[in-house]
Structure formats: C-alpha cells, structure tokens
Design a protein around this nucleic acid. Structure first.
Lengths: 201, 201
DNA sequence: ACTGTAAGAGAACAGATTGAAAACATATTT
DNA sequence: AAATATGTTTTCAATCTGTTCTCTTACAGT
C-alpha cells in the first residue's frame, strides 16, 4: 500500500507537513505552486496525485477545498508513553503500548514521546517525582537545553547540557548534586525536553 | 459525518468563531452579508446551510434568531484560559475568549479553567513562572490542597491551605515567604489546583 | 549514444463554487 | 390587517480550481 515516493514527492510532502500552519486554509494547487516556486499547477498536480495514491493526502475529486493531509500528523493527539526515567539508571521501558494525551503546545513538530520521572534529581528545575515529561527524539542538543542522555551506554539522566570542545558537562538542577564532566563519546543524547505535565489528583 | 468544508465555508465559519463577540445578538443573514462584504443573502444562505449540514451551526427553520454555532467552539478537549495569576495581586483576566487544550488526566470532572502563573511564589512546589495551571472551580477545599484563594476580596494567591477552627493558614511553598494566618471570612476559595503544564520552547 | 524516468512548463478543459438578483414564505411588529 | 423584517428557494452568469494533455529538459544506468 505504501508506495515509494520519489525525492521530489517526499520533498513536497515534507513541505506540507512543515508548513501546514502557514496556510490557515488548505492551500490550492496555485497557492502551493507559488510557495514551492513552480509555475505550472499541472506539474504539481501530478506530484500531489502520487501523494494521494500513497494515501498521504486526501483525494479531492474535482472538489475545490484545497490540499489537506489525510491525518494531520500527530493527529491522535496522543504520544507513546515509553517508560520511566530515574537519574542514574537505565530508562525502564514499559512493555504494553501505552499512549498519553499531550496538548499540541507541549510538543514539537518532531518525533516526541512521554516519560514519567522518578526521583527528585530535577527538583530545582520544577520537575518533580511523578511528573510526565515530553521529549523530542534527537541525537543532538544546543547548550542549555535539558536532555535525556545516556551515560556510558546504560545510565539515563535528565540534565541540562553544556558541550565544550572535548568535554560534555551535565548540570543537575538539584544543588545537592554536582555537575559531571564526561568525554563526548561517553554521553549519548537521546532526546530534548520540550514539555512537562503534572496531575495533582 | 463531518462533511468537508469548502474554502469559503471554512472562512465563514472561522469568521463566526472569531467574531462571535462582535454581535451581542447572533447575526442575521443581512448583517453577516454586510460584515462579509456580500450583497446577496441568498448566496450566504447556501453557505450557512452547508455549515448546518456539517453540524457546525444550529439549524434555524424559518426562525429568525440569527446564526449561532452549535457548540461554544472548543467545547471538547479545551478549557478556557482565564488570565494570569501572580501572588498578591488580583487575577488579571484576559479579554478575548482564549481556550487551551488540556489532557483529560490533568483535569477533573468538575468545572475547570486554566491560569498562567506569574512569579516564583510556588517555586518549591515545582510551579514556575510561565507555567499553566489547571484549576477546578470550587468554593471549598480539603486541608493540604493547593488553592487559588482571594484574600480580603482582592489579592489572589496560589497556596497550600490549612483550615483550622477559627483560622485559615496559607502556606507558600517558597521558603523565603512565611505562612500567613487569616480569619475564615478573609479568605475566599476560588478553586483547587488539579494540574500543571509547562512548555520548554 | 540510447533509453527510461522524473520533473516542469504551458495550454486547454470541465465542472465545482461563488455571488447577484429576484421572487417567495414565514415570523414579528405596528 | 398591513407593514416590515428575516429566512428560503431558484436561476443565472462569472470565476476559480482541479484535471488532462502535450512537449521539453535533465539525469541516471545499463
């Protein structure tokens, strides 16, 4: 069923996913041509048709309601709940495929998932035991971001990262603990903290 | 069931949602024509009919009560964003009717709304400046719950409550501040904290 | 070089959508 | 009852927008 997309088709699809906010209405072929720098909607139509065949775009049978993706990506509003994270231990995965409702503004366009926090290692960042955090899956991070990092391939931690030439420093937010310095190879970034939720009942 | 709207229909619907405040009575077809720059109510009627079929607008069978939306839009997963709360000040209300997506597990069955936190008065409870809190509207609370309280009829605060015989004590979580003791009449409970959310981007 | 595929331009077409106008029907007011 | 206001229906023309075609160019690979 899932046809293989050509490079250009993939490009157009990515563009649609990225910029679906741009158009507050689904774009027409002409609008998309303009946005993509094409000058013939006939050409674009052929590409879109391929995306329709691939099941990625709603078919529009002569209707004029613009191009819309079949599933507004991240549609179900639910992200996978991957498991528990406790400082200094491997991430404890959950076996059954749990999912969790997450508001749009707590996540990014990227690939996100949810972890539950165990322990108080981030208490000074306002992240408490039992909080749910939303993590964007990424291999790299900017200095100052809070990352889920794997140290020495097994210990997971949630810390603010500082990457220098030849060293990676992880700053815990809890003042009882000290910053730890590692060689870059020791620290593997698994994701970046983008949101947090807490229930009081 | 949810029919797919044409672009114009979307536009009109969006307009209705946006400007429902404008008309303090639901607008008549003629008024809407004027507002939308149309000169024929017959044309508009056809569009509205489509919205009625889509279940977005109340059908009006020859009644003349104007056009009204079926559901105060965003009724499902969204709660009203009421304004800002900063310790020691009145709650700063927001004028336009903003709504915010809130996962089911961050709220209760009761009547809930969202506030944005200003300031660090709850920093030790893990509630930071800029966090969104979910509050259940209630007049009473149990000891130990965190409440939105109105002190002396004007100052709002977010504090852990302790109710004794003849006295109400509000415990701030920030150790720099001290618990305050009030007479029961002075403290009016406006709601109870049930959830909290934070975005890192 | 030859061939096949992907990509794009442009023209022309078909039918969906929109809007104006007028006539009609029903409710509300005078 | 008459007048007015408002919703409903119909007809028609103009325009917009998806669709189909043909032709051209570029590139990759036996």
């Amino acid at each position: 069923m899932s046809y293989r997309l050509t490079r250009r088709q993939q490009e157009i699809y990515d563009y649609l996913v990225e910029n679906q906010e741009e158009f507050h209405h689904p774009p027409t072929l002409d609008e998309l041509c303009l946005a993509l720098g094409l000058s013939s909607k006939g050409s674009l139509h052929k590409q879109i048709q391929a995306l329709i065949n691939a099941g990625l775009v709603d078919p529009m049978n002569n209707q004029r309601r613009g191009i819309r993706l079949t599933q507004p990506p991240g549609a179900e509003g639910e992200l996978p709940m991957m498991g528990y994270i406790a400082a200094g231990q491997p991430i404890e995965a959950i076996d059954h495929n749990e999912r969790m409702e997450v508001p749009a503004f707590l996540r990014t366009g990227g690939d996100c998932y949810v972890l539950e926090v165990r322990g108080d290692s981030m208490i000074d960042e306002g992240i408490l035991d039992g909080d749910r955090i939303v993590v964007e899956h990424r291999e790299t991070a900017c200095n100052g971001e809070i990352v889920v990092a794997l140290v020495d391939g097994c210990e997971a931690t949630l810390k603010r990262i500082e990457q220098k030439r030849g060293a990676v420093i992880l700053h815990p937010a809890n003042p009882n603990m000290k910053p730890m310095k590692y060689r870059p190879g020791q620290v593997q970034i698994q994701g970046v903290l983008v949101g947090q939720m807490r229930s009081y009942h």
